[in-house]
């Protein structure tokens, strides 16, 4: 875990990421996996249609077994979200939520798909007029204004801290934060006003956002609300690396049969490459991506 350069870095530790880790590590590649298992869509699921398991199995049990298996092949795990990705000189560098940087010859994106929207009254109507889904994209439009960020994980916490450089007041609305201690300290020592144990009930405004109504009955007067659920999305992490998405939906990463994206050394597997969202498809793609990435890294290391 403390080495300078990995062969294969994997973002996401659901079935695609785990299978990729197992195959890459069993090929003797140095593997590192990022993410939290409980955020996989599989974690709370019971699976009844996965080959060779006749009786329904718990997703949590599968994920825990998969991690142990990957670790037995010496894959390293970091239970943090990746917040920044860069691709320079044939190497990928990843920054995690607590600020550590990791470098790898290849990168496999197994980010899954997350629900971005809150689905509350007023949200849809005011998108682009105060409702935003991307702090990095839109912070600059809120200079000197009051804003709220909604979310429980790294994207919300980092988003709130980022917004302090632009907005006058920044609120962070969350049920309970799932972030590293380092990030929590950073947040606590900042001017972000944290409002815990509640959630957004309604976005208020006619032509533009005027405020938000919370489930605890509180009303906040804000000019903008940033919905930042989960970790940074594929659109932000991958698109910044120049990865092509399918033009029809702009939701899924385009890959070939080797799970390669349009960027050399960059692979994608699992739900992020499109439907069907099934564990069987995820592990199949993860297997291919893991093998391909390990081989690519070996070639690169030999040069």
């Amino acid at each position: 875990m403390h080495q300078d350069l990995y062969d294969v870095a994997i973002i996401g530790c659901g079935p695609a990421g785990l299978q990729a880790a197992i195959h890459a590590a069993s090929k003797k590649a140095e593997v590192i996996v990022f993410g939290r298992a409980r955020k996989s869509g599989l974690y709370k699921a019971h699976i009844a249609n996965f080959c060779c398991y006749e009786r329904p199995i718990s997703g949590k049990d599968l994920l825990q077994a998969g991690r142990k298996q990957a670790e037995s092949f010496d894959a390293a795990f970091v239970e943090e979200d990746v917040i920044e990705t860069k691709n320079e000189n044939n190497l990928f560098s990843l920054v995690t939520e607590s600020g550590n940087t990791f470098t790898s010859r290849t990168l496999i994106l197994c980010l899954g798909v997350t629900r971005k929207k809150l689905r509350v009254k007023g949200e849809k109507e005011l998108v682009g007029r105060g409702v935003s889904y991307c702090v990095d994209c839109d912070a600059n439009f809120y200079r000197g204004l009051d804003v709220a960020v909604v979310g429980n994980e790294s994207a919300a916490a980092i988003g709130a801290v980022t917004l302090l450089s632009y907005a006058k007041t920044v609120y962070l609305i969350c049920r309970e934060l799932t972030i590293t201690d380092t990030l929590y300290e950073k947040l606590k020592n900042s001017n972000v006003k944290i409002i815990k144990d509640t959630w957004v009930k309604e976005v208020i405004g006619t032509n533009e956002v005027e405020g938000v109504l919370l489930k605890n009955g509180e009303a906040l007067k804000v000019n903008g609300i940033f919905v930042e659920r989960g970790a940074k999305s594929a659109l932000e992490l991958a698109a910044n690396l120049g990865v092509l998405f399918d033009t029809e939906t702009v939701s899924f990463i385009e890959i070939n049969k080797k799970q390669e994206t349009n960027i050399p050394g960059l692979y994608a597997a699992g739900d992020i490459t499109g439907q069907p969202w099934q564990i069987a498809k995820a592990v199949g793609e993860g297997c291919v991506a893991g093998i391909e990435a390990a081989e690519y890294a070996k070639k690169l290391a030999g040069d």
Partner: peptide, 10 residues
């Protein structure tokens, strides 16, 4: 620097 902007470019 906007990821979603890049994604809809094509």
């Amino acid at each position: 620097w906007c990821g979603p902007c890049k994604a809809i470019g094509p």
